[in-house]
Design a protein around this nucleic acid. Sequence first.
DNA 1: CAATTACGGACTTCGTGTGTCTATGATAAC
DNA 2: GTTATCATAGACACACGAAGTCCGTAATTG
Lengths: 127, 127
Amino acid sequence: MKYSKATNYALHTMLYLIAIAPDRPVGVQQLAEKQGVSPTYLSKILTKLVKAGLVESASGANGGYRVKGKKEDISFLDIIHALEGTTSLFECCGSGDERCVIHQVMLSAEEAMEQHLKNTKLIDLAK
Amino acid sequence: MKYSKATNYALHTMLYLIAIAPDRPVGVQQLAEKQGVSPTYLSKILTKLVKAGLVESASGANGGYRVKGKKEDISFLDIIHALEGTTSLFECCGSGDERCVIHQVMLSAEEAMEQHLKNTKLIDLAK
DNA sequence: CAATTACGGACTTCGTGTGTCTATGATAAC
DNA sequence: GTTATCATAGACACACGAAGTCCGTAATTG
């Protein structure tokens, strides 16, 4: 039960893109150097963020990645869901519709965490 | 990023011990049948609960497992910590003392979930 | 065309969760 | 004391996913 390292990289990358990046797209090599990760690995993480609609990419020379949409709206939960998926952390007695009491408690606990992550926007940390 | 099945089994077992069990200890075979798990596997889970001080065990004939201490005090978090450990869900930039801003947000989100799990006692579900 | 950059699939490695099997130790009943 | 019952612990096997790497392809700029 751990958040993956990929989620960590994604959060740092997004924060960097939101805080520093101007209009120009940023290449993956530059992003990778900042965190000491290989560019090829980070590119797969960025592709997930693209598919989630959080960033947009531009191929070719002077290409790279740029935040898509309003920067103010991007929350921690958006990025975590893009990397970890949206399925529940707790799987129980099999059928999903009739949830046992334990399952209900676990779901509401998870929801408490998600609410916190949803209310915290990345731009709050970009001072 | 999932809770382990072992945590699921532990929660159901503890709920059963708290709700149904009288003073007599309950054998692992009986507990295993209720959930369709092998007794040998469930015994390792129960051993963790013993080491965490949540249940006590009795060897020999008519032995088994029994809830230790006050049943009213046992929370979801106690059991989860016994199975999953107490380390943070999110590991970041390496050093633990100087936490980056992202790390701080993740920790407080995790804490929101833990508070919920800490405040919910198992006996609340044993009607 | 050539250089740059993202995208995608295949692949390896490693750790951990999930179990099983078996031996050992403790206790109660006979 | 002997035997049956029960917990405990270690070794082992297996599957799956996380974490990367490598390489080929596609797109865009100059």
